[in-house]
Write a protein that binds this DNA or RNA. Sequence first.
DNA 1: AAGCACTATGCACAAACGTGCAGAACGGAA
DNA 2: TTCCGTTCTGCACGTTTGTGCATAGTGCTT
Lengths: 320, 320
Amino acid sequence: MTPSRHSDALRAAQLYYLQDLTMDAIARELRTSRSTVSRLLSSARESGLVQIQIRSPLDTGPELASMIRAEYKVDVHVVPVVDTLNEAETLDRVAMQAARTIGPLVDSNAIIGVAWGSTLSAVSRHLTRKITHDSVIVQLNGAGNMQTTGITYASDIMRRFGSAYGARVEQFPVPAFFDHAATKKAMWNERSVQRILQLQARMSIAIFGVGSVDADYPSHVYAGGYLDEDDLNVLANSDVVGDVATVFFRADGSADGITLNERSTGPDLAQLRQVRRRICVVSGASKINGLRGALTAGLATDLILDEATARRLVSFDGVS
Amino acid sequence: MTPSRHSDALRAAQLYYLQDLTMDAIARELRTSRSTVSRLLSSARESGLVQIQIRSPLDTGPELASMIRAEYKVDVHVVPVVDTLNEAETLDRVAMQAARTIGPLVDSNAIIGVAWGSTLSAVSRHLTRKITHDSVIVQLNGAGNMQTTGITYASDIMRRFGSAYGARVEQFPVPAFFDHAATKKAMWNERSVQRILQLQARMSIAIFGVGSVDADYPSHVYAGGYLDEDDLNVLANSDVVGDVATVFFRADGSADGITLNERSTGPDLAQLRQVRRRICVVSGASKINGLRGALTAGLATDLILDEATARRLVSFDGVS
DNA sequence: AAGCACTATGCACAAACGTGCAGAACGGAA
DNA sequence: TTCCGTTCTGCACGTTTGTGCATAGTGCTT
């Protein structure tokens, strides 16, 4: 009974959230049982019919969020955590809040660029549904590596985004890094690749994590067989601090002359900065160096991170 | 303890609405009692920190809302009502939903034009707080009449808007109608009046009800001593169907040649149509004729009305 | 320092809510 | 029509949440 059920859900949501009736009262109004109303409301939230968002006041005293906001000119969402939480639990919380924060930003006709990695994977698992039209999810960078084509991992993430927002999914079926810059150049002229690149150029939202070269638990990129020994050595001996979508940068935000980027498949930083809404999700204080670089480079317009990392971000700034 | 209390509220709201923790769990995390958390969350909702909104899908089958939307090109919010409700209860519901719907549209630096009348009065009583900066509430039309200066009534409405959004309030201290068009012309050149007019010209949101000449319970305008016998007779014998902010119009949406408007203090229809967001709130099916005129005139971008009126609106259209 | 007015807190109880479960209703397929 | 699988519904129970009240805390005045 999808037709009337949907409109019942809308009605119930209006009465509950907009008029503060109790479920009991709504049940009487809809001539059904209270439990059904409870379920209608669940499905209304579930399907994105009801949107709950938290607008952190932009001016709250000298707090973490506002300090970071002032320093880096980004919209900050600090996820509260308690120190008894471990890495995985923290990631889960951050991902959940990120998913819910992204929801309201997504709209019809959006082109949403999505990177991959453990952070994005976690986020994708917590997305709340929201019905949109003619939206597209486009993969930001290739995911193939020397062992696998990377299909399953990255495409699961993409697929979850797609189904949460009812959007078309456009994969980017190339390796994360080419072995030879020349191959990349050649591929970039292929029409199948051009199509993806042109979508990327028209992105209205980009969502990504950051990799940090010196993280305690190195990101997929640094550990997952994407780069060989030589590459890793070069990285370690350079002043690269991290990456976004497999594009590397230094602490000062610069990326020029980093040869690895010539073989990488992610959007270059200048192009990324063109995107109206660039959402960076970070969990785990050990990513701090990569994060600072990304912020300095102006890669993000919105930052969602856990409290512990936020604290380190500002204390570092104070020291330096 | 406003500083930490506020940030506790934010934290609680994030944990509750964004991460689905129970209040109990949040209480432990904040080292306080569950009841305090309950109260923190109340105040977070209360103060507009948490925004709940319902996005009615724009494409739901052949329903009331979408029929009206298609016909008049407005964003429609139909307020569900049961037929056991009387006029006053319906108005209350509509007003409540209107207030909550308006909330998310208000933002910092907004200039919000507000009319007066029983509908607006009801709406003003249900506004939810939302902190904004440098917003202004500006009165759309004068409220003085032959008995009183209209100060208390209209200014209560304005004041409530102002305090809900933390906005400056700009009253319009003139009568609703001048006795002589010439006086209006003269006053319109006064600098004190000019200031208000210029604010009105820069409005980003306008909120108003409609008056209908043949309503069962005539609006304030037609009954409150704003117009004398002669005026009312002229109206009754003309083809005027209603008014918005004391500016009259015909069923076809036209207003040219209606002499009363030359003495009225509301913004003329062309000017009103310049406003980006024009929110019309209507409760009570007897206002149908005025409403149709207003919609035909393209005065509203958003319409909030009760279900019964919505139903009559489309059935009329079907018949004619 | 004491007194006072006001606000915030936790307790305890009542109200409101979510959900497993069993039965009803529905929608094909035979 | 009957059967079976699926979905929807209401009940009953346990959990979660709101709130009046007494108490503790806070800041301001004298």
